[in-house]
């Protein structure tokens, strides 16, 4: 009788322990499941945090490009952006020889204007911006979530920041860089570093973004260093000043404005 009772107690105890273990495991799993970051959402966040859906954006960019053979070149460019209509206007203010030249993005067409010849020429977002390491597309709104999907991710420390390292692959064969590697701050989701790779898997460009400024609900990279990983010693530094989110007249984003501003 006693033996029977002790076996029963043992079975009950084991079942209780098993249940407890299962419950703990399921709670732990549930807890860990809720904390696993949704990387595609992070890409969305990155795009949202750098976009001005309700305001226009303007700033003065200073672009200093260093070339070991050509020396240092400085460009000052006035930038106007209207993200809700996917438009931008870049007007050169310096150097003097380029004053009045500019880029206008309207209806997915990017135009380059030269006041000397008074001609607009069709150009591509994939071209380098005036011989620097920046691409024309670097000045339009971020579309990472649309163009890329997360291939893999990990967590790491980047200087003092806790970051996610995301490896992205292009969703189609028409984006400039087939593969990107991003170092994204955990909170808020700001890109601190980008590595851009070629189709053959070669590192082409590294971009470091050490400073951001909060403008309204968005963040603007106020300085950026672009390093050409193929040409030794070639890099470009971009800094933004006089940032404003005041709305601009519609006429700013037109060809006639570019022509008029040069008269």
């Amino acid at each position: 009788m006693v033996r029977k009772a002790s076996v029963k107690a043992l079975v009950i105890t084991m079942a209780a322990v098993l249940c407890a273990l299962l419950m703990t495991a399921s709670v732990a799993l549930a807890a860990s499941g809720s904390k696993a970051p949704d990387m595609q959402k992070i890409l969305d966040n990155i795009d949202k945090l750098s976009t001005f859906p309700n305001n226009d954006f303007s700033a003065v960019m200073t672009i200093v490009s260093e070339d070991p053979k050509k020396g240092v070149e400085k460009h000052v460019v006035r930038m106007f952006r209207r993200d809700r209509e996917n438009k931008f206007l870049l007007l050169f203010q310096e150097p003097e020889v380029m004053k009045g030249q500019g880029y206008l993005l309207v209806d997915d067409n990017l135009w380059f204007y030269d006041p000397e010849s008074r001609k607009f020429t069709h150009t591509s977002m994939k071209e380098n911006f005036s011989g620097t390491d920046a691409k024309n597309s670097d000045f339009s709104q971020s579309t990472l979530a649309k163009d890329y999907q997360v291939k893999s991710w990990s967590e790491a420390k980047f200087y003092n920041y806790d970051v996610y390292i995301l490896e992205l692959e292009a969703r189609n064969d028409e984006v400039t860089y087939p593969t990107l590697k991003l170092w994204v701050n955990k909170e808020p989701n700001l890109v601190l570093k980008t590595e851009s790779y070629s189709l053959s898997g070669r590192l082409l460009r590294s971009a470091l973004i050490p400073n951001y400024a909060k403008v309204g609900s968005a963040y603007v990279a106020t300085s950026m260093i672009l390093i050409d990983e193929l040409v030794a010693g070639k890099k470009t530094q971009i800094t933004l000043k006089n940032i404003s989110i005041q709305n601009l007249p519609d006429s700013v984003f037109t060809k006639s404005y570019m022509e008029r501003v040069n008269r």
Partner: peptide
């Protein structure tokens, strides 16, 4: 030497 070029669809490539 290296050659940086665009694929026919506009992607960056290096040979």
């Amino acid at each position: 030497i290296l050659a940086r070029l665009s694929t026919i669809t506009g992607q960056q490539n290096v040979g």
